[in-house]
Design a binder for these strands. Structure first.
Lengths: 226, 226
DNA sequence: GCCGGCATTAAGGCTGCATTGACGGCAAAT
DNA sequence: ATTTGCCGTCAATGCAGCCTTAATGCCGGC
């Protein structure tokens, strides 16, 4: 789950970013409207959290630019308390939800989860491939009933693969969804993490689920051939 | 247990806040209706104690706003007036209990405990994880029958962790539930208190119950790795 | 069979998070 | 006024997880 946070107040930005990272999100932070818009248009986010009071380019402007670009990424507006008229205006401009500062992180999280769930493709809370099971709520992974401990990166990678079983993901797509911007350059980082996953998820079992598609990428599936 | 007290009379506010803190509640105090409403909407309380005679925004108004927001937090009304008609009106507006001033602190406490007990999820009075036992009534903690002395903060933290065994709590969530509003900014206070708890709860025993989930948070569980 | 390129894997350095002990401030108790 | 104990801060240390690098293995084309 990759997410963009556009917020100029350091305290709020750090607070939210830290909380989301603990929830295993890959979080990019933009400190003003301009770079926020740049990043939103350059990358493919699963969620945008947008403050309205921003230097350089107002949040309202960023919102309408993103929508003009016709992307359907969920956008959650974050702002100081203000008039309901404003609220309606922003909903019409394409915001999906609205939260006034100050807010409790728990509430933000609830709203985010609900936003992600009601996407175009219904988001399952439990993903299953053969005996492998990933619970998005508790973030626990099991295979044949036995718990498997994963690090944050390993978990995010597995979640991404399992979000579309049998679909082949290229290394580029994987990097764009699982890693955040702090990452650049072409390395074999994906291959390495596939290795880590295999060590925990496939190695102890006879049936291998993670498949390499030469020249293309990786996918997760129960059928060996296909 | 986090609780919001909305009361403008300093004497009463201090009296109640002190009493509740002695009972190990994390107490936020609002001195007028407006900030009371702000805080109620911003945070996630387990209980709200509301005076009716308030500057800026009446308690009645605060009550109906909270209910309009559709939260089910228990609300206890606190007021000088004793008219039965008023009382009924407020019950209809969503109050859960009603206490007229002056009152004995002991009585307030009894009503609070009964309110908390009849929450949507039946509240267990004794929490257990392996040999560790926390009694919410006497606020005593034992492990393998031996009493463990905890300070208020340590107790609150342990209670929170034990309220959902095996669930991982992020530092952000822990701060929101165990500390009160006076707290903000990024510190390692949670880590420090986890240390204190471990010193008393885990260090003297071979089986460790408090587990760190790196990059995410902490949880309490009997299973070590699995 | 040979070669080039891609995939796999092991090993290691680095970074930042987690851990821990010590310290000063504060409030309650004596 | 002094003491005691709790709270929150800070900084030193250690270590886990992240990413890189490079050696090796495998596959397909010629």
């Amino acid at each position: 789950m990759r997410c963009l946070l556009i917020e100029d107040e350091n305290k709020v930005a750090d607070f939210v970013a830290r909380g989301l990272r603990a929830e295993r999100f890959a979080v990019d932070v933009a400190r003003d409207g301009e770079s926020g818009w740049d990043m939103a248009s350059a990358n493919d986010y699963d969620l945008v959290i947008l403050d309205l009071m921003l230097p350089k380019l107002s949040g309202t402007e960023v919102l309408s630019r993103i929508r003009r670009k016709n992307t359907s990424v969920p956008i959650l507006i974050l702002t100081a308390r203000d008039a309901t008229a404003e609220k309606v205006r922003h909903f019409e401009a394409g915001a999906d939800d609205y939260l006034t500062k100050p807010f409790a992180f728990a509430e933000l999280l609830v709203r985010i989860k609900s936003l992600l769930r009601r996407g175009p493709v219904a988001r399952e809370n439990v993903l299953r491939v053969d005996g492998l099971e990933l619970d998005r709520l508790t973030q626990q992974v099991k295979r044949d009933g036995r718990r498997i401990e994963l690090t944050s990166k390993e978990y995010s990678l597995l979640e991404y693969l399992m979000s579309h079983p049998a679909r082949v993901f290229s290394r580029t797509m994987i990097i764009e969804h699982v890693w955040d911007q702090s990452f650049e350059g072409l390395t074999n980082i994906v291959d390495v993490y596939i290795r880590h996953l295999r060590a925990k998820v496939d190695d102890p079992f006879p049936q291998k689920l993670i498949r390499t598609v030469r020249g293309v990428g990786y996918c997760i599936t129960e059928e060996p051939g296909t």
